[in-house]
Every structure is written in structure tokens, then in C-alpha cells.
């Protein structure tokens, strides 16, 4: 070991050190002078990206832009059942139209196929959301003939119960009990319409009530049959089956 220390530096080491020094200074020179310094500047990269992202073109104008010219429609919509919709949900991106209202006109859906995007029945849609079966619900007739798109309501005075119990009505309307009137199961005295909380409609009380249709002796042809004596005798029917949307069809 000692002899190593006092010997002159071996030639290999000087050669390698020289090569290494050359390489290192080359790298340093390139880094400091030969390349644009922005390549190394992370803050610059972040800043330029934020700017680029923030300045991308906007195609949708936003709800506020519509109110400036179309005050009436906006007001009408704000009071109706479509109040949660933006104008651009149905009319499409309005960015260009806002820039030049005469040059670019917006699309206004007038055919059935647009409304059913939301309102066709789908079992995955939340219950109570207004849905129809497009094949059965006035086929071929454009929706806007009966429903005002900016403030849609049922076209005529609603069936009495549905006026207040819309959600149940809409749920029932897509269920296998759709054809049953509310009064098939509930007796609603006239006074219920005046003082709904004081005078209540009746509700079925026992299993035999459902059994009228679903029991073995029923005359209803389509109703599924069960043997009341053997089928879940400890429970009332509606403890398992929701009458307004019974499972199955």
C-alpha cells in the first residue's frame, strides 16, 4: 500500500482523468451555451402550459351568454320543468353563434329522436325521471306538438292523481302495473283533493287484496299467479314487492 502512495500517478489515471475532464467540460459547455436555456427551465414549462391550456378555444358559450339576447325563452325555461337544462344541452355549442349571431344559427331539435335521448324508458334511469315508451307513446308525432320544449308539461289536465303524485305516476307508467288506474287499489274520497292530509285515500290492507288478481282463482289472464297459502305467508305482499314498480313484466 505504502509503495502505491509514493509512486508517481499511474499513466492510466492521468489518461482517464483527462478524458473525463474533457467530457465533463464538453457537457457543461453544451448545457450552458449550446442549447436554449428554456429547455432546462421547469417553471417556464409549467407557465407556458398553463397559458396554452387556458387559451384554448371555447366552443360552448355558457348559459350566461344566452340570457343577453333570448331573455324571454330563458325566463320561460327557468320556470318550467327544464330549468336545470342549459340552452346548449339541446341547441348545441353556441360559441360561434355568440360571436356572430346572424352568420351562425343554432340547431333546434324538432324531431322525436332528440327528446327520447333523455325521455325514452331505460331500466337504468332513476325511477321517477319522466320516461315514455317511444313505440307506444303517440308514435310518429313530434314531441313538440304537445309539449313546449322550454317549459314541458303534460298536454292536458293531468289524470287527477298524477297532478300531485307525479313521481309515482311516472314510475307506475313504466311498470307492469301501468294499465291499472290508481283507483284500482286506492279509494280517494273527493275531500282528499281539498284537504289532502286530513282525508287520506285508502290503501290495501291484506294479502287477499293482491290475491284478487294474483291468486290461483284470478280471472286476470296476464297476472302472474301465486299460491297465497304457500307463498311467503308471514309477510304482506308489499313488504317484498313494490306495488308501483313490481319486478318483472
Amino acid at each position: 500500500m505504502k509503495s502505491l502512495l509514493f509512486r508517481p500517478v499511474p499513466e492510466q489515471i492521468t489518461r482517464l482523468s483527462l478524458a473525463f475532464a474533457l467530457l465533463a467540460s464538453g457537457v457543461f459547455l453544451v448545457r450552458a451555451h449550446a442549447i436554449p436555456q428554456t429547455w432546462l427551465d421547469r417553471e417556464y414549462h409549467v407557465k407556458s402550459t398553463l397559458e396554452r391550456e387556458a387559451n384554448r378555444p371555447r366552443r360552448f358559450a355558457g348559459a350566461q351568454a344566452c340570457t343577453e339576447c333570448h331573455e324571454d325563452q330563458v325566463k320561460e325555461k327557468a320556470e318550467g320543468n327544464h330549468r336545470t337544462l342549459a340552452c346548449e344541452t339541446c341547441h348545441g355549442a353556441a360559441g360561434k353563434h355568440v360571436e356572430d349571431p346572424t352568420e351562425t344559427k343554432l340547431f333546434a331539435p324538432r324531431l322525436r329522436d332528440y327528446c327520447v335521448l333523455c325521455h325514452a324508458y331505460d331500466p337504468s334511469r332513476p325511477t321517477g325521471f319522466p320516461q315514455i315508451n317511444p313505440a307506444l307513446h303517440n308514435p310518429l308525432k313530434p314531441c313538440i306538438e304537445c309539449h313546449k320544449p322550454h317549459a314541458p308539461v303534460p298536454p292536458e289536465t293531468p289524470k287527477e292523481c298524477a297532478a300531485c303524485h307525479g313521481e309515482i305516476e311516472r314510475t307506475k307508467a313504466v311498470s307492469s302495473h301501468a294499465a291499472l288506474a290508481c283507483t284500482a287499489c286506492h279509494d280517494a274520497p273527493d275531500a282528499h283533493k281539498v284537504t289532502p292530509r286530513l282525508v287520506r285515500p285508502t290503501k290495501p290492507q291484506n294479502r287477499e287484496f293482491c290475491g284478487k288478481c294474483h291468486g290461483p282463482k284470478s280471472e286476470e289472464k296476464k297476472a302472474p299467479r301465486v299460491d297465497l297459502a304457500a307463498h311467503g305467508e308471514r309477510y304482506l305482499c308489499w313488504q317484498c314487492h313494490y306495488p308501483h314498480l313490481p319486478e318483472g313484466k
Binding site: E53, N55, R58, G62, A63, A86, T89
Partner: peptide, 15 residues
């Protein structure tokens, strides 16, 4: 980002 930094809603939220 180009909308929300200008107080607009994202396109998906808007529609």
C-alpha cells in the same frame, strides 16, 4: 381549464 379559469363551467357540467 380554458373555461373554468374564466368562470365558465366545464362543458360536461354545462350540458
Amino acid at each position: 381549464y380554458h373555461r373554468t379559469t374564466r368562470d365558465l363551467l366545464p362543458a360536461c357540467v354545462e350540458v
